[in-house]
Amino acid sequence: MEEVLSTLVRGLGFGSLYAMLAVSFVIIYKSSRVISFAQPAMMLAGATLVSYLAGPVGFYLAVPLAALGIAALGLGIERATIRPMIGRPVFVIAIITLGLDIAIRVVVNVFIGRDVRQVGDPWGLSTVEVLGLTVQQRYIAMIVVLVVVVAALFSFFRYSRWGLAMRAASLDQETALVQGVSVGTAMAMSWAMAGGLAAVAGAFVGTGGGVDQSTWVIALKALPAIIIGGLDSIEGAVVGGLAVGVVESFVAAYQADVAPWLGQNFSLVSPYVLLLLVLLVRPYGLFGTREVERV
């Protein structure tokens, strides 16, 4: 029982990271109707920036600073490569982000070097006793950050003027324009927010183990999460992210005993298997809106 619970907590911990990344994908998708394959690079860049800043200013200040920095990078990307492409097929824009991802990652890799960089987090692998259960502190930190971030995002979208503008722009760009919403600014903000979110997630991905050149793969696990949750639903992204984390964690814990023929590290690809299964049953994900087809 204790093993099951600790597996669950670990799953929820990593799941919170996937959820944060998934939310960043969804924010971009809602504003630009595009899946940004550049998010892994943004996450890696954020984690690397934290690892450089943590020394001089400490982890707690480094994370918001890195989030701001990567948000600026997101703004730049939107302005330079996405804005000129408005009106072109989404597939083309998606492939552009794929190209950007590769280019940015190469540059970031130069700064990472061949070794693992520590992000200087205060938790490391130390544990704490919660209700008789030993859990790693970093998992608790991840869950708390997810709750804070999601609460902040929800209240932003619900109560703030700009949140309303962004929702309007994502519903119907032309109508929003007519109502006086600056659609361009709304799009730019969404890319900046997504960049910031990816950077925060990246900082927490680096806790415990550190960051190296292969860390970016983790961000791609948010893709199964958003597909499972539906591309245009933030709630779905959170649920999908947590589900992916929990499934991965349980597979990691039990697959070696239950189904050893699946090979080592099967847990790393289990999100994609889950993705295939969900899509076979529900082609638009669990929370996604079914596309209405007009002739």
Binding site: A94, L220, L223, I227, L231, V269, Y272, V273, L276
Partner: peptide, 16 residues
């Protein structure tokens, strides 16, 4: 894009 991501998943499963 749903298809793009499914085929992306295929690459990872294949690699495994």
């Amino acid at each position: 894009l749903y298809l793009a991501i499914v085929t992306l998943g295929l690459v990872f499963i294949g690699e495994h």
